[in-house]
Amino acid sequence: MLLFLEQLLNGLQLGVFLFLVAAGLTLIFGIMGLINLAHGSLYMIGAFAAATVTNWTGSFLVGLLAALPITAAVGMAIEFVVMRRLYDRDHLDQVLATFGLILFFNELIAMIWGRPPLFMTVPDILNGTVEIIPGIPYPIYRVVIIGVGVLVALVLYGVIARTRVGMLIRAGSTHREMVGALGVNIRVLYTLLFGFGAIFAGLAGAMAGPLMSVQVGMGEGILILAFVVIVIGGIGSVRGALVGALLVGVVDTMGRAFLPTLLKTMLPPAEADGIGAGLSSMAIYLLMAVVLVWKPRGLFPAHG
């Protein structure tokens, strides 16, 4: 039971991560109609920026805070140079051009930092454990990640649903020309919004640094998981991204933790290990397939 709760927390933590990445992706798609494969590159850039600055200054917090403006700047630069030419293009063009960006950024990072992974340590203050559920010492750092994710979800909801900027963003997504005609500089708004989405990816990357190795190509795995998340949640819906991320996080973690053991009760151990490993790595995709059969547009289909 304790193990189960601990794995549930791990699942939540993975889910929060995925939410941070998926939120930016779904926001940009929902509002600008742009599918951005290079979102994973922004995640990677965030991680590299955080790792480098942390190693210079010795302070994780400084590293984390430096990563945010850096990814925002890179994001806005991408928008300015490439993305704004793609808004009116079909999805195929968007996929290919942003695939080109991935190739570019992966090689750029490899040229600057090399292929071997960088390592980041968790700052001392976050290094202990805490018993948020009695009997389970759980790393503080992971608790912090869950907290940050919840905070981001709240802020995002607040900004989009309750502020004037959020209102313009929502209006711009449905009636772009109209909002422009009313005197809003929609181009600048989109550039800023893109930077905003990039910050989430950068934040997730920076926080992932101490947990996973920081290396070239780290963004792609998470990008595809984020795709699964937003397909399940409904593309363009931030609420869907949250639900989808938590579902995927929990199913993936639980599957890896318990499926092989569960299978061992039914199959000989050698086979159970093999099939269990295979099944648990496929679990989230099967989840996606089930959701698709049930609701082809995802759990929370956005308008349009």
Partner: peptide
């Protein structure tokens, strides 16, 4: 790092 140039070419 030939893909460093190939990416922009693709774009």
């Amino acid at each position: 790092h030939w893909r460093f140039l190939f990416g922009p070419i693709l774009i």
